[in-house]
Computed example of a mutant assay.
Amino acid sequence: MKGFIKLISAIALFSIFISLFSGCGATNTGGTQDNGKTGTSAVEYKYGKIDIPGKDGSLCGAPIYIAYEKGFFKEQGFDVNLISADTETRKIGLNNGTIPIVNGDFQFFPSIENNVKVKVVDGLHYGCIKLIVPKDSPIQGVQDLKGKKISVDEIGGTPHQVASVWLEKNGISAKQEDGEVTFLPFSDGNLAVEA
């Protein structure tokens, strides 16, 4: 129940952020209703139509998708269109205003440092980065990872950054050149699990 309350709070903060910073002012009286699904009755949206990345299927995007499915955006006056967008598309969209908000993490920090016009507003959720091993694996803790290969979605992405910090805090170098661990990028999580 505590996690559910945190999720609802995060979604509420997300909705408030959109209300304050979206700059959308059009009213849509087209044939969309109930979370952007096609229908026959016209619905008015106080803030008009906006695109939000939320169709990538990741756990990190779950709060956005839940808010969409539950009609929270509609209740706040937004006709939300969920889109798919990779990290670079999200950065560009935030910078030029075509995407009003994204759920992001470490990969946005270098852009912020390079004066891309984005800012961190609040945390949306936590806990989706996990280390998994096969059931019969002898790996029981961080020290067992020395000399092993670790799959990540991309070098420099959040799982890579989080794993690197964790390894370094436990006395294992995360630098490829030190050879204590090897990071292998898999853009498809299913391939990583299979490997």
Results as ranks from 00 to 15, higher is better:
156 G>N: 08
170 N>P: 06
92 I>W: 03
97 G>D: 06
99 I>Y: 11
76 Q>V: 15
91 K>P: 08
144 D>Y: 07
166 W>F: 02
147 G>S: 08
77 G>R: 00
104 G>P: 09
93 G>C: 07
75 E>W: 12
157 G>H: 09
90 R>D: 15
163 A>D: 08
86 D>T: 15
161 Q>D: 09
139 I>E: 03
79 D>G: 06
83 I>E: 03
136 D>T: 03
128 C>D: 15
74 K>Q: 15
121 V>I: 14
119 K>R: 14
89 T>G: 05
130 K>W: 11
103 N>S: 12
129 I>T: 10
158 T>K: 11
69 E>G: 06
104 G>Y: 01
156 G>F: 14
131 L>F: 11
164 S>H: 07
115 N>W: 05
123 G>C: 12
149 K>Y: 10
90 R>E: 15
69 E>F: 05
104 G>M: 13
128 C>K: 13
153 D>N: 10
170 N>M: 14
98 T>E: 09
73 F>I: 08
118 V>W: 04
82 L>E: 04
114 N>Q: 06
89 T>A: 15
134 P>S: 04
156 G>C: 06
101 I>Q: 10
106 F>D: 13
126 Y>T: 13
90 R>G: 12
105 D>V: 11
137 S>L: 00
75 E>D: 14
71 G>S: 03
104 G>W: 00
70 K>M: 12
154 E>H: 12
91 K>A: 11
93 G>T: 05
161 Q>S: 13
140 Q>F: 01
164 S>C: 07
112 I>R: 13
162 V>D: 01
69 E>P: 01
89 T>N: 15
103 N>I: 04
171 G>Q: 00
171 G>K: 10
136 D>F: 11
163 A>Q: 02
167 L>D: 00
113 E>C: 08
134 P>L: 01
71 G>Y: 14
130 K>C: 04
138 P>S: 09
107 Q>S: 13
147 G>D: 08
117 K>N: 14
142 V>C: 00
75 E>A: 11
142 V>G: 07
165 V>P: 07
124 L>W: 08
77 G>S: 03
108 F>N: 03
130 K>D: 03
90 R>T: 09
118 V>M: 14
150 I>D: 06
146 K>H: 05
72 F>P: 01
117 K>C: 13
118 V>T: 11
130 K>H: 05
125 H>A: 04
77 G>D: 01
161 Q>L: 08
100 P>K: 05
88 E>M: 09
130 K>E: 06
79 D>E: 12
171 G>C: 00
170 N>V: 04
89 T>C: 10
87 T>K: 15
168 E>C: 07
172 I>S: 03
145 L>D: 00
